[in-house]
Computed example of a mutant assay.
Amino acid sequence: MLEIKAERLKLVALDARLAGLQSRAPEAFFEALGVQSEASWPPELMDKSAMDWCEEQLSAQPDAEGWYFWAFIWPGFMSGMDRLVGGGGFKGPPDQNGAVEIGYSMLVSFREQGLATEAVNALVEWAFSSGQVREVVAETLPHLIASQRVLEKTGFVETGSREEDGMKILRFALQREKAAA
C-alpha cells in the first residue's frame, strides 16, 4: 500500500481492490485498513457514485494509485485503535499542463482539529514531489468557509470563480514554485 506519514495522520492511497471494498463491503474495507469501524463513513461528498467512479478509474489505470482517493487515518486515536477520520485525493493523474485537482472531506466528529489542513499539506507535498505536478487546484462552494480556510492555510490562493447549474464555485490554486518558497 502507498502511504504518506504526516504529523498525526497516516494517509493510505486506495487501489482498485480497496476502492471496491469501500462501496460494497465497508466492514472488509475497515479491516483491510486496520481501522475501527466507522458508522458515519463515508464523509460528506463521497457518495456511492464517487466511490464507484474511483474504483472504475483505478481498475482501468492500476498504475495511477495515488492520483485518486486516499484514506486519512489517525493512528492510535484515543481508544488506542486507528480511526478513519476522512478522505481525499485527486481527480486523476496530472494533465498535460502538470495540474491536478484536489478534494477532501472529514467526518463531522473530526473537523476543526487541523486534520484536514495536515492531510492537504501531505497530499500537496506528495504531488509536487512526483516531479509531474506544476500546480494543484481546488474548487469549493462560497458557504464552505472551513474548506476555504484549509486551502488558505496550505498556501492556496483564490484565482476566480465559475457558475455551474446556477451555483457559484470558487477556484483556488497553488503552484509548485510558490509552495517551495
Results as ranks from 00 to 15, higher is better:
Met1Ser: 14
Leu2Arg: 13
Leu2Gly: 01
Leu2Asn: 09
Leu2Thr: 13
Ala13Thr: 08
Ala16Leu: 06
Leu18Met: 06
Leu18Lys: 11
Ala19Asp: 04
Gly20His: 05
Gly20Asp: 08
Gln22Trp: 00
Ser23Ile: 03
Arg24Phe: 03
Arg24Met: 04
Arg24Pro: 03
Pro26Met: 10
Phe30Glu: 12
Ala32Asn: 10
Gly34Asn: 11
Val35Met: 06
Val35Lys: 08
Gln36Asn: 13
Gln36Leu: 10
Glu38Trp: 03
Glu38Asn: 15
Trp41Thr: 07
Pro42Gly: 05
Glu44His: 11
Glu44Phe: 08
Leu45Thr: 15
Ser49Trp: 02
Ala50Lys: 10
Ala50Asn: 05
Met51Cys: 13
Asp52Met: 12
Glu56Arg: 15
Glu56Met: 13
Gln57Glu: 10
Leu58Arg: 09
Ser59Asn: 14
Ser59Ile: 06
Ala64Arg: 03
Ala64Tyr: 06
Glu65Trp: 03
Trp67Glu: 01
Trp67Leu: 04
Tyr68Met: 08
Trp70Leu: 05
Trp70Ala: 00
Ala71Thr: 04
Phe72Leu: 02
Trp74Ile: 04
Pro75Gly: 00
Phe77Ile: 01
Met78Asp: 12
Met78Asn: 09
Ser79Arg: 15
Gly80Cys: 11
Met81Arg: 14
Arg83Phe: 02
Leu84Glu: 06
Leu84Thr: 08
Leu84Arg: 03
Gly86Gln: 08
Gly86Asp: 06
Gly89Phe: 00
Lys91Met: 05
Lys91Val: 02
Asp95Arg: 00
Asp95Tyr: 04
Gln96Tyr: 07
Asn97Arg: 12
Gly98Leu: 07
Ala99Ile: 07
Glu101Phe: 01
Glu101Asp: 13
Ile102Pro: 00
Ile102Val: 15
Gly103Ser: 13
Ser105Asn: 09
Leu107His: 06
Phe110Gln: 12
Phe110Cys: 07
Phe110Ala: 08
Arg111Ala: 05
Glu112Leu: 09
Glu112Gly: 01
Gln113Ala: 13
Gln113Lys: 15
Gln113Asp: 12
Gly114Arg: 07
Thr117Ile: 04
Thr117Asp: 05
Thr117Lys: 09
Glu118Ile: 07
Glu118Asn: 10
Val120Glu: 03
Asn121Gly: 07
Asn121Lys: 14
Ala122Pro: 00
Leu123Pro: 02
Leu123Gly: 01
Glu125Asn: 14
Glu125Arg: 14
Phe128His: 06
Ser129Cys: 06
Ser129His: 15
Gly131Asp: 02
Gly131Asn: 12
Gln132Val: 08
Val133Tyr: 01
Val133Met: 03
Ala138Glu: 08
Thr140Arg: 10
Leu141Tyr: 14
Pro142Asp: 09
His143Lys: 11
Leu144Asp: 01
Ala146Met: 00
Ser147Pro: 11
Lys153Thr: 03
Lys153Pro: 04
Gly155Gln: 12
Glu158Lys: 14
Glu158Ser: 14
Thr159Gly: 01
Gly160Phe: 03
Gly160Cys: 07
Ser161Gly: 09
Ser161Glu: 11
Asp165Gln: 15
Asp165Gly: 11
Asp165Ile: 09
Gly166Pro: 11
Lys168His: 11
Arg176Lys: 15
Arg176Leu: 06
Glu177Asp: 15
Glu177Pro: 00
Lys178Met: 07
Lys178Thr: 14
